[in-house]
Nucleic acid binder design. Structure first.
Lengths: 243, 243
DNA sequence: CGATCGCTTGAGCTATCTCAACCGGCGTGG
DNA sequence: CCACGCCGGTTGAGATAGCTCAAGCGATCG
């Protein structure tokens, strides 16, 4: 039941295919500017109605919900190329917040352009629905992870997924990629306590499977990690949560 | 942080608004037939590429993923008016399975109609993206539930959500609605073991909060249930997971 | 220098899991 | 019409993953 590469059937474009020149030109039309922010900036607020959509060009962030109890559920990690704010563009309101973890440079689009896009470029509109459906797929997977996997399995899977995404973005060098989050962030993403996350990370480190220190993830034994994560080693490269 | 009513901004249509005559006529154009199935029928198979889209008119079902370990994660419960198969319509493949629990009557659409729709009716295409975004919202919420809530809280929330949806569909009479699932189904939806689910249900019953027997959910103390579920009592009616 | 932040480690507690047995209803076949 | 098997639900008992509380440590910063 290995994960397949996800292609948009309309134009047969895999998630991570770089944009063609035509596409770039097309995007330029909608681009209204670039935004540079510090780490720790809130880009989108739950309940807000932002007039902008973003795509990060550099830097990393977090997508999360704040619960009534004050706890935080991290929905996923935001990497370059993701799409931020489609939810607000299409519903009237964001259902989660987005925050930069490191300094970020973002490409800014105007929200009104979205409707224009639907009218004038049905194939792009189709892409957007596709993006949303892909996103749904990953959320479904996360749901299954939280529902059925143990702490070490969850962390292993998170690492493999992040490694996949990092690889697709060319962020990996010598089995090492930047992962500038706190242990608390990972804990909130996986529904684990900070303490337990820490102890489990220690275990992975002692077993020589993977280390994550000083914002840098180092995968020492990829096969073993995949095995723990209950993922096949021969996955087709892919995976990017979006919107 | 109460949940808001979700309106499609384009036509300001709330999730559950009945369709206008024009809309009904419009849908008729795409309808290719009706399908009647037994309980226990698999309507969509994970990894399959169904040429049809469905909307249940009667009956209830389940959306689920089968994990490599053989376990099952129920993604959500399928009630009349839901949309089945958009994911396959837009990606090439379903990422989860759908199964009827009771006998069902379904409205059938042709998948190719979807692309026609995007070309000819941008506002409907926008609706579809909106639907996907709404779906994403609910999955995000489920994620938060599994991540952070105790067994009794999860069950209480599931009951409240199901009650909301049942109410919107007119399925409730005397605080009682049909809920023809097995305890195992609920357990798989909430990431709990069957035994623990059973014991927690017993607890809710003993406390006079809610009973669920013989396929019928009876909410005895709505306020208390909402309190346990950490939801405000004055939610605006809404909620339907779709696609 | 004190304060803060992220990480680490220890100790005890409990929610939840697994294993196992049993029960009643229902359909089937002899 | 009875015997049997199966399915869903119920209950008990023991094991444990993961939680909370609490303390300490090194780095960074004003």
């Amino acid at each position: 039941m290995g994960t397949k590469c996800l292609n948009c059937p309309l134009r047969n474009r895999p998630i991570f295919a770089p944009m063609s020149d035509g596409e770039v030109a097309f995007m330029q039309k909608f681009k209204t500017g670039e935004l540079v922010v510090e780490g720790g900036t809130t880009l989108m607020m739950e309940g807000s109605n932002s007039p902008q959509l973003y795509t990060p060009l550099e830097g990393m962030g977090l997508r999360y919900k704040t619960l009534d109890s004050g706890e935080r559920q991290v929905i996923n990690f935001v990497l370059p190329g993701d799409f931020i704010g489609l939810q607000a563009g299409v519903m009237n309101e964001m259902q989660h917040s987005v925050e930069s973890t490191t300094p970020m440079r973002l490409c800014v689009f105007d929200r009104r352009a979205l409707w224009q896009l639907f009218k004038d470029h049905p194939e792009r509109a189709f892409d957007l629905t596709w993006i949303a459906a892909v996103e749904e797929h990953f959320l479904g997977e996360s749901l299954a992870i939280l529902g059925h996997m143990s702490g070490i399995e969850r962390i292993a899977r998170a690492f493999v997924r992040l490694h996949d995404r990092g690889a697709a973005l060319g962020l990996i060098s010598a089995a090492r990629m930047p992962l500038p989050y706190r242990q608390q962030d990972l804990a909130d993403a996986l529904g684990l306590s900070l303490v337990h996350t820490n102890k489990t990370l220690t275990r992975l480190r002692q077993q020589g499977v993977a280390t994550w220190r000083d914002g840098s993830l180092n995968i020492l034994d990829y096969d073993r990690l995949c095995q723990i994560a209950q993922l096949p080693t021969d996955r087709t490269p892919m995976t990017r949560p979006l919107i």
